[in-house]
Write a protein that binds this DNA or RNA. Structure first.
Lengths: 111, 111
DNA sequence: TTACATACCCAACTTTCTTAGGTATATTAG
DNA sequence: CTAATATACCTAAGAAAGTTGGGTATGTAA
C-alpha cells in the first residue's frame, strides 16, 4: 500500500476485487484500486505480485495467461475455496474497521 | 493487534488515547482499547511497550513514573510535537479507512 | 529516439507484529 | 499457606508484509 497507514489488508482487497470482477490481471488491479479510492490509495506492483503468487500457492486463485495486443496478461480468478475465504476475510476486515472507528471516535466532546 | 487484520495503526491508536486522556500507563491502554472495541480488539503488551519506547525516542511522548499501591506505573503523555503528530496521524488513518471502505463497497448490486 | 503507459517480475531491506517467555506485587479462593 | 488471577513492567527471536530500487519487454505518442 502506498499509503502506509493500513497494512495487512492487501490480500483481502485482491480477493474483493476478484469477487466483483470474476477475472482480472495484476496491472488492472492497481488501476482499479486507484480509481475506487479516488487516487488516494495505490497498491505497488512489488507488493501485489508476490501477494498474488502466494494466493495461487494457497489454492485461493487460479491463473490463465493470454496475449492481448502483443503484451502478456496473466488473469486471476477465485477458486471455490477462494470464494469462501473472500467472504470470511471481507467480513473480518469490515469488523476490524468498525472497531478501529470506535477507538478513534470515543472521547470526542461533540464537535 | 490481536486481530491481525489491520496493522500499522498501533502508533496512531496510542496517540489518540493520549489525546483523549492527557496521561495513561501502558497496561491501562490495553484495557481501554479492549473496552472501546467491545472486546473485539486487543493490543498485546509485547507490541505496545516497544511502540511506546519508540514514541518517547522520537520525542512524541514523555514519561513520569509513580508508585501506586505498591506497583510501578509509568505514565505517558503527549509532548507538543506529539500533539501535532496525533492530528496528522489520526486524520491520515481516517482517510485511509474511508478509502478502504470505498474499495470494499464498490461493486455491490444493492442486496 | 525519447518518454510514457502497459505488463510482468525479483532481491534486499525495514518495519511491525507475534510468539514465548521473564520479573514482581496485590488480591482473592481454597 | 498456597495457588491462581489481576496488575504492571519488560525483552529476544522470528515471521509477515510491506518498501525501495531495480530489471525486462511491448505499444504509442511527441
Amino acid at each position: 500500500m502506498d499509503n502506509k497507514v493500513i497494512k495487512g489488508s492487501l490480500t483481502t482487497i485482491i480477493l474483493k476485487l476478484l469477487e466483483d470482477n470474476s477475472r482480472m490481471y495484476g496491472y488492472e488491479m492497481t488501476r482499479e484500486v486507484k480509481e475506487r479510492s479516488q487516487d488516494k490509495m495505490q497498491i505497488t506492483e512489488a507488493a501485489l505480485y508476490p501477494a498474488l503468487h502466494k494466493l495461487v500457492e494457497e489454492g485461493l486463485l487460479t491463473t490463465h495467461t493470454e496475449m492481448v495486443e502483443g503484451r502478456m496478461r496473466k488473469y486471476y480468478s477465485l477458486t471455490k475455496k477462494g470464494k469462501k475465504e473472500t467472504d470470511v476475510k471481507v467480513e473480518a476486515l469490515k469488523a476490524a474497521i468498525e472497531s478501529l472507528q470506535n477507538i478513534l471516535n470515543t472521547g470526542l466532546s461533540h464537535g
